[in-house]
Write a protein that binds this DNA or RNA. Structure first.
Lengths: 131, 131, 131, 131
DNA sequence: GTGGTCTAGACCACA
DNA sequence: GTGGTCTAGACCACT
């Protein structure tokens, strides 16, 4: 379920956090659904439990999950408008990517077409799933 | 010319490589133009020459510049089609960003509007500058 | 009556103790009034009786309630002056909060305004209810 | 300099983070000043370096310091308006404290007097110290 | 020398 | 059984 690249430069805990975040964003992991227990996941991935916990803590700080000691970790329902800072980051990244695609020869119309396709594809499973 | 954020947790050589890449993309540094010599730039930025070297090596690996031993480093003219791999990466990143923006509550129409604005803004200075 | 946030990382028994304390402070639970029996409350909140017990014990230690073996737990009438230690703690906390609000950019006048508003709001139901 | 209570229920890393935060808020640690190195502090406090790092990481997440790998950790200049969420928390805490002080018999006028005294005392060293 | 990552293994509080 | 904390000790990247 979680494919990690142990040789990658990116730390394991970040890779894991990223994977989990994607599952949440794509609504594979539903709001308030319980995540795999730290120790269980550590066993499956043959990774130290501390590393898993670090990933979960990271996601908690970023507002994607919440952890209840003694109970488990759960998907946090999305709250529109909370992550203004994150949105600004995404804007900047978007800008960079578009500029580089232009530089590499992609025509503007082509870029818009692809994004529209992406938007309609995400419409079903994606989009905000609030309380 | 190159504003580096020494406070950032991103390594300096990566920041520098990114800045140079942007200048190339935005056509501020023209094809075959010579980049500042390592030692000169090191002096101006009060940064270790090794760090500059690392940034240039990074850019060479990614195909944005080329080095002529004994002469210096130069901007590599863009070659449409050669960077298919890079384009696929950009596609994936674009997909991720769009999906996350949707999750964070941005409306699809809003996303397209922003990209169009970005496209028209880059139209002047940006765009491919091939041989 | 007692709304607990099972998602919170704060232990349930602490949340419960806090809620009861607030009801006492706001004079909703009057002096010498009997608190809900442990088992009853456990049933209503669908929570382990041990957890309720722990909350009540906590409140007894802090001087907000008293227990009569075989009878139940009751609200302890406030005794001005006996809680000097608690008052000193509150002073310290108050100092910390005010300092941090200043640091975060809140103007002194604004702080006083908010506190006055808070004071007049609590004036009705709040205030000391001694013997 | 940092007095920790190893027997306290509060985790060491939180105690340490709190202490450092206070030094920053009271302007004892000035903006962009370097914090003690993780290993050095670990040695002085006879505490594991990982624990220190956890405290620093916590402070970084909350926006009070920034860490540059290979350089050190530094005090982050305050940015007014960034910490809206933290301010809301402080408001709630302030409300609770004021209410409890009333309950313990402190007169409203007395509360305001103390806060004003606190405000003028903090005026010198406290207050925001932005860029 | 700096912070960052990871492991192995132990202990605690909570439900 | 759960997450959380802490230690000891090793290795890496960056400057």
């Amino acid at each position: 379920m979680f494919e990690l690249d142990l040789r990658s430069r990116a730390p394991i805990y970040e890779q894991l956090a990223e994977k989990v975040k994607e599952l949440i964003i794509h609504n594979v992991l539903k709001p308030d659904q319980q995540l795999p227990a730290v120790r269980v996941l550590a066993g499956e991935l043959t990774i130290n439990p501390n590393t898993i916990q670090k990933a979960y803590r990271e996601l908690e700080n970023r507002g994607y999950i919440y952890s209840v000691p003694g109970k488990g970790s759960f998907v946090k329902p999305a709250e529109t408008g909370i992550n203004v800072i994150r949105l600004q980051d995404l804007e900047k990244e978007l800008e960079k990517i578009v500029t580089e695609m232009l530089y590499l020869g992609v025509r503007p119309q082509e870029i818009i077409t692809r994004i529209k396709r992406q938007l309609s594809k995400s419409a079903d499973k994606g989009g905000p799933h609030h309380d």
